[in-house]
Design a protein around this nucleic acid. Structure first.
Lengths: 248, 248
DNA sequence: CTTTTTTATTGAGTCTTACTCAATAATAGG
DNA sequence: CCTATTATTGAGTAAGACTCAATAAAAAAG
């Protein structure tokens, strides 16, 4: 609070030594933590988890490596904290946007598009999340698992509601569809990363949504428009009766 | 050739020292390379790439760390070699199985199921592949990229053929569908890894295939209206007949 | 069979990086 | 203004990837 941004300068101690100075700045815990978190996010995003040096995160926050460890137990704990922030933001954002959209189909299209946008706009961090959020089945990363669950739970709820409303085929399994959606987006984005083509978010979102919603078979007749089929058949029968009468 | 498997034993040098012996075994390059590769595959599979120590791989192959580096430039090169073998096997296997299946729908179902089987039967290695096959856009891992492309190319070809044969809706984008399939499987498997439920491969394969093939909307109206078009036309024809009769 | 050449194998050593800890100094409380 | 607290430091440890000059097993030459 006193002097937040007085950067490194020299403090002449009575001793005449040319000793490079040690000016420490002591800051409110919350502020320093936020700074470290921000640096960590940047470094993880740029270099990936493995190649991110804690020393660099420290330097960028204007502290020394040891300091970082007084705020976060391990490098991994730091990563988890970064992810937590990221997901919290993302969940809030997606949910508030979704609240304004009506109809199962529109809501699904919204979720797909929104996820694609996030993915491409914060690619570096997304890459880290995806890479690191699936470690060994070791449970120490339950934190990440839970965040992921909460986030993908958004689409899951939309699917379940759509199912209840009768907008979706009654034989689908919501969690499987959710996996298709998020997994499909992930793969599609990666493909674009390596091909040199431009990533048209809106187009890709539509293509993915079309496929998931409508299927890919030419006659997705299956159980789909059974109802439609029935009604037409009734009409046909009516006409047939008419024909019979006229003929007779 | 002379004495391949004479294991470590003592060789009394004229000197009376109790020095622990150094018995080296020199083996044909190909054999030793295969041994190292096998150990590497095991260790990567058990520990993941990051936690796999080259020293352990060496020990399991009965050599010292430096030896590994005389066969493979880097740890990463070793990983790539392991993956290469894995993919080569997988591609051969999948393609030969696929050759016996007819019809776009069946062929797609086969690919999905086959991939799911691989995934669950060699989970450790698959985890590593997925984690490591997407590093920075750095091209030094072009090798892996290419392997992946070749493998997922199998499904892509099935989709393209189906499109050409008119079995699939003409407005789908094969590469997007491929991403849905592989991405969806990946996510679905992961979910099972963390939930304690049993993974029913056949069931999951069907659920995924049903969703991709048939879509999820109750009235998959969209391009499905080709079918609707047909039915309406039937009605029109019926009415036309009637009109003709009445007129006549 | 003996000597020479080749090269696979070794193990000691370097370097980087996550993580620890006792010492230090900036701040808060009295 | 002095004292107690604790944030911050920087030197140090440990583990693991990677190097390299020396060594000895095998092959080639005599």
């Amino acid at each position: 609070m006193a002097n937040p941004n007085k950067d490194s300068s020299t403090v002449g101690l009575s001793v005449g030594e040319p000793r490079q100075v040690k000016r420490r700045t002591r800051r409110p815990r919350a502020e320093r933590e936020a700074e470290i978190l921000a640096s960590a996010r940047a470094v993880f995003s740029e270099r990936g988890y493995g190649d991110a040096a804690v020393a660099e995160i420290a330097t960028r926050s204007g502290v020394v490596e040891g300091t970082v460890y007084s705020y976060f137990e391990t490098k991994r704990a730091l990563l988890i904290a970064v992810m937590k922030l990221f997901f919290e933001e993302l969940i809030m954002d997606t949910e508030s946007g979704l609240a304004a959209v009506r109809g199962t189909e529109n809501r699904l299209r919204f979720v797909i598009r929104r996820h694609l946008e996030t993915f491409t706009s914060d690619l570096g961090l997304c890459r880290v999340v995806i890479r690191e959020a699936r470690p060994d089945v070791a449970l120490y990363d339950e934190a990440i698992l839970d965040l992921n669950r909460r986030y993908t739970g958004i689409a899951l709820r939309v699917l379940e509601e759509g199912l209840a409303a009768g907008d979706l085929r009654s034989d689908i399994v919501p969690s499987v569809i959710r996996d298709l959606i998020y997994g499909g987006i992930e793969h599609a984005v990666w493909r674009f990363l390596f091909s040199d083509g431009e990533l048209e978010i809106a187009l890709l979102a539509d293509q993915l949504a079309d496929a998931v919603l409508g299927g890919i078979l030419t006659q997705s007749a299956h159980a789909t428009d059974t109802h439609q089929e029935d009604t037409v058949r009734r009409l046909e029968r009516a006409v047939e009766r008419l024909e019979a009468q006229v003929a007779g």
